[in-house]
Design a protein around this nucleic acid. Structure first.
Lengths: 327, 327
DNA sequence: CTGTTAGCGCATTCAC
DNA sequence: GTGAATGCGCTAACAG
């Protein structure tokens, strides 16, 4: 019985070539004649050879894990639905690379953390979320070329289009006093949706009504309270995260405000349960799994086209029907 | 300027000892005199030495990643809130070990996948979820000692206690015709809650009303329909997952059934947004992060006490107030 | 196109 | 307690 796994040397011996040639064939890099190629492949198959990922990476000088660093004021951000979903998607993509994902929270001032990461010889790549504009420009040298960002400047969602489409929908269905619960001002990704909102309200001559949120439902709840106190005649509240929207919905329900009758609500993200809510949440969906995959590939140094991923509106109950004023 | 990172040899040289001694000190394993110990530690600090994780693991013959394999009929299970949250928690814990997490879906017949995993030299540990009783007994030899399970037989939640407490609460608040949407029958973890349900209904002389769910909200919705069609006088529906409960709530809302007035509903898991729903979902909470950490440690071979993690009821709106019959 | 020679950076036998 | 050798398994230069 075979007690130890076959190594590259075994494969080479069986194929009648040198380990170097076997390595070239198996890695796909470097020249190799058709003859030795097939011989090596056959030998590898017969021995059911599986390369040793750790040895391979050591020899290549590459790391074995990708770190997903999420920048935020709160450590609890690691339990955010978007973060966990993106992390899971990355871990899923990395499986095919024989690489794993580490998840880490970093504070708003994370310069030291990045320096620390740059010194990690086991790091294959870094994916950064929650960055602002400055951060990406001041990356430690050791991180350049193996860092990818999620959000503005990296694998990004066309949030302006997504939120814009939702806002347009609200407008077309008769809403005229639309408030926006925007993202935190320190976050680069907060800008596009706000810009879309500003453009629309300005073009349509609607009153601007903006408050800041932070992707938690608690803040969403507070934001809804603020909105209704400050502008009691508001007939729609758009948000930039489903969690925020849930908080908004909760406040409205408790305040006896009908949705969508009195006030329409929209989210952003299309969390798995958005459609299972009652009333079902109108939101914008985007391919989180694809985005995560793109970020991971970019972090691993693969050429990644800086495309903007689509954000498509999903119109469900919370934004349907006309506003109170048209009812 | 220092252009290359210090290696073990550099530290040894600076401390005036051999690399072997330096290694012993830095790894904590093996003997070392107090003198050389402090010398090595000082040298390491001065050079800000960071061991090369990959080289270390290669030399030790250890792997560099933990695979989280989720067994289910559907590949979409990787987007399940519990799975993503657990995966994120594991990836977070593993960060401290310089190890990463890979996530993978395996079908119900996953024997071949496990054999494949056992042959992976880069595997540091395996965490298995969604197993049945037989699976853990027939693990490939190469996986023994580095495999941990989440659910029955591993890092498990005391779901019987959690669901039992919710059921008791329903009973004490006047519900007498309580239905249960149980988990799939092929899943080991489905048994304890069902046993708790059976025990309670039998002891209280309540009619047993059980249908099977699968942790999706769609099935929860269908299950609610089935329950109300089969037993129209049902006054409470308990479930074993929040996603299922959301589906139940959705159906009830569409059917015009008041919650909790006509029918009380309970979930299980306490997903982050459970409290932000309206009506807020009564459910049972358990320390997912701790469970994930325990599973990871067990998978890495650390001695892990086979404790049952607590499941504590969180009573919110959907289970409050008396039933229709008492109203 | 191929084989030979060196490492990758560290942990671990063994003798001393 | 310590050091010198040896190996982890593979890839990358180089000469042929």
């Amino acid at each position: 019985m075979r007690d130890v796994r076959a190594g590259l040397a075994d494969v080479a011996r069986r194929a009648g070539v040198s380990p170097a040639t076997a390595s070239r064939v198996l890695t796909g890099a470097g020249p190799a004649s058709a003859a030795s190629r097939s011989a090596v492949l056959a030998a590898a198959a017969e021995l059911s050879y599986r390369a040793h990922p750790v040895a391979r990476r050591l020899a290549r000088g590459a790391g074995t894990r990708v770190v997903f660093a999420v920048r935020d004021a709160r450590a609890g951000i690691l339990r955010d639905p978007f973060v966990t979903r993106a992390a899971a998607a990355m871990a899923s993509v990395l499986d095919a690379y024989d690489i794993g994902l580490s998840l880490r929270h970093v504070g708003l001032e994370c310069g030291a953390d990045l320096v620390e990461l740059a010194a990690d010889r086991g790091l294959a790549g870094l994916v950064l979320a929650g960055h602002d504009d400055a951060l990406l420009g001041h990356l430690p040298a050791g991180l350049r070329g193996r860092t990818a960002a999620i959000g503005a400047g990296g694998a990004d969602v066309d949030s302006a289009a997504g939120v814009g489409a939702l806002l347009t929908h609200l407008y077309k269905t008769g809403r005229r006093r639309i408030a926006l619960v925007a993202g935190p001002s320190w976050l680069a990704a907060s800008a596009p949706p706000l810009a879309a909102y500003t453009a629309l309200t300005r073009a349509a001559g609607l009153p601007p009504r903006v408050v800041r949120g932070d992707f938690t439902s608690d803040r969403g709840r507070a934001a809804a309270r603020t909105v209704l106190r400050r502008w009691p005649d508001t007939d729609a509240i758009a948000t930039v995260s489903d969690a925020t929207a849930l908080g908004v919905l909760q406040f409205l329900a408790e305040a006896g405000v009908r949705v969508p009758g009195d006030v329409a609500v929209t989210g952003f993200d299309d969390i798995p349960l958005a459609g299972a809510l009652h009333p079902a949440l109108s939101t914008a969906t985007h391919p989180v799994e694809e985005i995560a995959a793109a970020a991971v590939r970019a972090a691993l140094g693969e050429p990644a086209p800086v495309t903007l991923f689509p954000s498509r509106p999903v119109l469900r109950t919370t934004s349907c029907g006309g506003s109170a004023s048209t009812a």
